[in-house]
Design a protein around this nucleic acid. Structure first.
Length: 875
DNA sequence: TGCACCACGC
DNA sequence: GACGTACGTGGTGCAA
């Protein structure tokens, strides 16, 4: 077996882990995030690399021989946070438990130890892998040595071979020190040459080879300023190179042979994980983790008969359905908590209790629940009506902070300081092992849940009021939950026969296309496998590689489009992809979720998920049914009214986000444009390109539309450049010109960012919040992302608020006017109804009326509508 | 079972 | 210069 040495840069990985993960604590208050990250990284290395020899190198002390060369080396560096320092002893303990040798050397850095040992190992015929978070180490890459640098997080490692370095920087590994010498390294305080960054450094090295050769032929450097800088900083460049050079003959006292790895001391390792509270890692080692037993005893009663004495005002009611799709799973238990006690009972008990059913249906008796929509629907499937819900812990938690509201009861409970509760996973198990436990155990768990809801009601209400979000909760989201429950329960009728026809036809076409593609490729392969497709396109057919993914060649649509002219096969693949998507996701996917009784699908809207306040839809997702391409749009022919002589009626807001922007920003030009009913993309083109309406070309309008799109979705210059197929610079200029054209918008963007910085969150028209802590990050990417989020969320979120309000008003109006028409779906800016023919004329009046007047803005809201026998025809 | 890639909507 | 860049859901392939 080939010998393989893994060398790990301990300090660097510890740093990476520390900053990549949130500050975890174990129960003794010791910070453990760096140790945890280090462990997961180590485990990944061990399984991926299976080293025969291994060592972790650490930096020793503060000063090294490099300080003699340059006193300021690593100067100005933030000192190691104490939260990290305190974790180093644990990392050492971890390595000892793994029986992995560690090493540090006075006066030298970990880099030098690694450099020295890797050289020795290469000579002795080892394959070497180096793992670090510091790109400097890539200079050690060679035929036999690969350098892995952690990318985002800690377990995502980018491997640097000489080929990869060549691809990325267009230089050989031994020139990396020259690159560093020229561009410097702010984190190590290596000065380099001012004004020279990565791009310039690479350009110079490609031309001259090394720093020394460059300085010899300095007259040949193009660019006066650059030449001056180089001349001025000659010595500094040479010194910087020296500082960046890893020493390969440090006086290391261990030999490679001594580093052979014989496996971990599992007993020690388990003890260590236990001490630090790494339960998930313990479980991986096959240990059962006993529950934290600070669970308080809960006294409850299992009811076999429910009577008036148990049923009180202000109860919490908890319904448990095991499957997350409550249209498939049945209720496995119900619990209740109120002044008279804490109870558990089965569905059968509930069904046989007239008192319970009346109590549940009584609007005037107030109940608190966790997930009102789920509770209402799952009870309604049993013919039990649930009314009078005035508190929903799931929604309250979501409103208080949409980022943290994982749909997981135990974590919501913990977050708001409720008494401890076991996780569902601990009680029910997971995956294939998931099952309903014995009744006593289930009863206890559910009793605790009802208890938590009961406890948290007033606490959450208080917090909502403090945030000025109580109205959002009671007047918007809670009533909406009831409407969504109705929509879901009603479901949408599907023309199954039509779908099956389409399936048949598509299957034939796909077969033919598959044959054609295989023929053109000269071999049979799986077109759906990006991996196999990549080999065919880029190796066998030798098409140019446009883009790579981290696992291979990219074969995405935008890449294939660029290759269309190069080979006939490409177009066929694009068509195959398009139809394949329709077949698998929309036709087969939809057929899979049609309920046998009545040919309906019952999507579930997740009301507590998105960061902006939008809804999402699953099983099936009815918010992404094709519309753009005719071929796909035909899918909509399969969505039909559920009753004879009814029609589908669809109404959508026109440009709601841009209208919201005009309102929030108070931009006069934009407001004027909407007041005048102008075509907003044409108007934007006029303002951005400084032309009059007649001179706007279709290309100008397309660009303007993309910019508007970018504003609405908060995309970056990069994103805009991708969608328009232009350079990033051009895209940036477009955005700049847009902001120059609409000074009100510019001002809004600036203000909202500073508001986000100051408060830590942004909010929508109806007081929905999104917290954006990254807005103060020193990391450019995180901060930029946060800034775009700050600008975009009030726009998208307010639009979401408005349509939610419209849905509530609409339900009220339909009820008031005694109409049979039903709201079926919401697709972000669109509402879809089914309606008796004779009500269509009425809907044409009231739907736009209600939607356009859901809120009052300083621009008009505009709604378009249409109707027909299928969703397809309602266009 | 989990991740990577791709593609659909707004 | 920063290396990753609206938000969702779902399908298939593939390695573990």
């Amino acid at each position: 077996m080939k010998k393989k040495l893994v060398l790990i840069d301990g300090n660097s990985i510890a740093y990476r882990a520390f900053f990549a993960l949130p500050l975890l604590n174990n129960d003794k208050g010791v910070h453990t995030n760096a140790v945890y990250g280090f462990t997961t990284m180590l485990q990944k290395i061990m399984t991926d690399e299976k080293p025969t020899h291994i060592l972790v190198a650490f930096d020793a002390g503060k000063t090294t021989f490099r300080h003699k060369t340059y006193g300021e080396y690593k100067g100005g560096r933030q000192k190691t946070p104490p939260e990290l320092s305190e974790q180093f002893p644990y990392i050492r303990e971890l390595l000892d438990a793994y029986q992995i040798p560690r090493y540090e050397l006075e006066n030298y850095e970990a880099d030098d130890i690694i450099g020295t040992l890797s050289l020795q190992a290469e000579k002795d015929g080892y394959e070497v892998k180096i793992i670090s978070g510091d790109k400097d180490l890539t200079q050690l890459s060679s035929e036999t040595t690969t350098v892995g640098i952690t990318r985002k997080g800690i377990t995502d490692i980018e491997m640097y071979t000489p080929e990869h370095i060549m691809e990325k920087w267009e230089i050989t590994p031994d020139r990396i020190i020259d690159m560093k010498g020229l561009m410097g390294d702010s984190s190590d305080n290596i000065p380099g040459v001012p004004g020279v960054g990565e791009k310039t450094a690479i350009k110079l090295l490609k031309q001259f080879g090394t720093i020394e050769k460059l300085l010899d032929s300095i007259d040949e450097v193009s660019g006066k300023k650059l030449k001056e800088k180089l001349e001025e900083n000659k010595d500094q460049a040479v010194m910087s190179k020296e500082l960046a050079t890893i020493l390969r003959e440090a006086p290391v006292k261990v030999t490679v042979e001594e580093l052979n790895y014989e496996g971990s001391d599992d007993k020690k390792l388990k003890e260590f994980f236990k001490e630090l509270g790494f339960n998930s890692l313990l479980e991986k080692m096959g240990e059962t983790v006993e529950e934290e037993q600070d669970l308080q005893d809960v006294s409850f009663e299992i009811l076999t008969e429910i009577n008036d004495g148990h049923l009180k005002e202000d109860s919490s009611l908890y319904i448990e359905v095991m499957e997350d799709n409550y249209f498939n799973g049945e209720i496995v238990g119900i619990s209740m908590r109120n002044q008279s006690g804490n109870y558990f009972f089965t569905l059968e008990t509930a069904l046989s209790s007239k008192a319970f059913k009346e109590w549940a249906a009584d609007e005037s008796i107030k109940k608190s629940v966790y997930d009102a929509k789920m509770s209402i629907v799952s009870l309604r499937r049993q013919d039990i009506k649930l009314n009078g819900v005035d508190f929903d812990l799931l929604i309250a938690s979501y409103i208080l902070n949409p980022a943290e509201s994982a749909d997981d009861f135990a974590s919501v409970a913990k977050r708001h300081g409720a008494s401890a509760i076991e996780s569902d996973e601990a009680v029910y198990g997971k995956g294939a092992k998931r099952k309903v436990p014995a009744e006593e155990k289930l009863a206890e768990h559910l009793a605790r849940k009802a208890n938590v809801v009961y406890e948290l009601k007033s606490i959450c209400e208080e917090s909502l009021k403090e945030n000025d979000q109580y109205q959002l909760f009671t007047d918007l989201e809670l009533p909406l939950a009831i409407i969504l429950a109705d929509m879901e329960y009603t479901g949408v009728a599907v023309d199954v026969d039509r779908l099956k026809e389409m399936k048949e036809e598509l299957a034939n076409r796909l077969d033919e296309m598959e044959k054609k593609i295989h023929e053109l490729a000269g071999e049979v392969f799986n077109i759906n496998s990006p991996k196999q497709l990549g080999v065919v396109l880029f190796e066998k057919l030798e098409l140019p590689v446009i883009k790579k993914t981290k696992t291979g060649y990219s074969t995405s649509a935008d890449v294939l489009e660029k290759l269309q002219s190069k080979h006939e096969i490409v177009e066929h693949i694009l068509n195959y992809r398009q139809l394949g998507k329709l077949q698998s996701t929309y036709i087969e996917g939809l057929l899979k979720v049609v309920h046998d009784d009545g040919h309906k699908v019952h999507t579930r809207f997740n009301q507590a998920l998105t960061q902006t306040g939008r809804l999402s839809s699953t099983d099936p997702n009815l918010q992404n049914i094709p519309i753009r391409l005719e071929e796909g749009r035909k899918i909509r022919q399969a969505f039909v009214p559920s009753e004879k002589n009814w029609l589908m009626f669809a109404a959508d807001y026109s440009q709601i986000e841009l209208r919201v922007l005009a309102h929030i920003a108070g931009d006069e030009k934009l407001i004027h444009a909407f007041n005048e009913g102008m075509d907003i993309h044409t108007k934007t083109a006029m303002d951005v390109f400084h032309v009059d309406a007649d001179s706007v070309t279709s290309n100008m309008r397309r660009h303007a539309k993309a910019v508007n799109f970018g504003i609405v979705y908060g995309i970056s210059d990069f994103g805009l450049s991708q969608s328009l197929g232009i350079t990033r610079k051009e895209a940036g200029e477009f955005i700049q010109r847009y902001l120059d054209s609409y000074p009100g918008v510019k001002e809004y963007m600036d203000d909202i960012i500073s508001e986000a910085k100051q408060k830590g969150f942004v909010k929508t028209l109806l007081q929905r919040r999104r917290y954006i802590p990254e807005i103060t990050s020193r990391n450019f990417n995180l901060r930029s992302f946060a800034e775009r989020t700050a600008m975009n969320t009030p726009i998208q979120g307010s639009a979401a608020d408005i349509i939610k309000k419209a849905m509530i008003d609409m339900a009220e109006r339909l009820e008031k006017e005694n109409l049979q028409s039903r709201l079926l779906l919401q697709v972000h800016d669109e509402l879809i109804f089914e309606a008796p023919e004779e009500e269509i004329e009425r809907l044409k009046e009231i739907v736009p009326d209600v939607m356009e007047n859901a809120v009052e803005l300083n621009v008009p809201l505009k709604v378009d509508y249409s109707y027909g026998p299928t969703w397809y025809d309602a266009k």
